[in-house]
Design a protein around this nucleic acid. Structure first.
Lengths: 89, 89, 89, 89
DNA sequence: TCAGATAAAATCGCGC
DNA sequence: GCGCGATTTTATCTGA
């Protein structure tokens, strides 16, 4: 529910104000996100204009991302082992 | 292909450098985008903690967005009509 | 994996037959979908041939769709509110 | 433009009726297309429920499609050759 | 050829 | 935990 049941309705004005504030913050952030998404597109465009194939760059970026995630996972597993062995923490 | 056919391979080093630059810019922007996405989630979390229902806030945000888009569409179709009538351009 | 682990491989033939059936059904449906997409294009073509501007028709169709979606969203949020107030369900 | 310039405006009613008809036909077709898209999803769902992995079925369907396209292209090229050689048409 | 629209596919998050 | 819906991302298509 929008307001938790049982909440005093006398505070409706305060709540409306809070709600408005949350919504504005979200909309502002989404606007920023959109701008960045457009920036990313522009970089792909620029790369294309320099003779690179956007699709392949996309692939490279995605592979590098997977590598980072894989490395992070491996580190986490290593930490788990080390913790289990009482060697850290 | 990564490089457009017919491109001189002597410039491979230059190209590699350019490519690396594009990739780094993209990765930096994607990182920023991710941070903002997380910020948005946090706002929803905070709203929830204040007693608001994220689902409803989500719906309100989406409806407001639709309103904006609808208004934009109406302006666009008006332009189309005016152009068709030879009244602008 | 194609088959969930632990599944008995003795049923491979049955599975192959099932798989083939699923694939054929999907391909048939996709073919139908493609035909309809072509029909839609034809209608636009026909409209154009009768002197209408496809771009404007497209916009009208899209605006009408948006109207329907907006109405649906409004009903949904009303339900959300009513549910939140414990007035339905 | 919606109406070709120079078109007699006295026929506005007829035009409106034609336009409405085009729009209704398009909307009807789009509705059908949507239904079929949902049917396709259902088949994937059903396949999943039988123990198949939707992702892989998707891959198979897409590969078969590419095969068909490839075959069609090859036939077209063959036709081109045969035509060029005056052996058909 | 190019961006912008459209559709397809993958991913995420939530409720049951 | 798993389907299911929403969101995001990727790819295809079309019109300028």
């Amino acid at each position: 529910m929008l307001l938790t049941l049982g909440q005093n309705m006398d505070s409706a004005t305060v709540n409306a104000s809070h709600l408005r504030s949350f919504i504005e913050r979200i909309e502002k952030l989404e606007e920023e996100k959109k701008v960045i998404a457009e920036d990313i597109k522009e970089v792909y465009s620029e790369a294309k204009g320099t003779g690179f194939d956007a699709k392949i760059i996309r692939k490279i970026v995605s592979m590098r991302k997977m590598d980072r995630e894989k490395r992070r996972e491996e580190e986490e597993i290593l930490d788990l082992y080390l913790t289990a062995l009482g060697m850290i923490e």
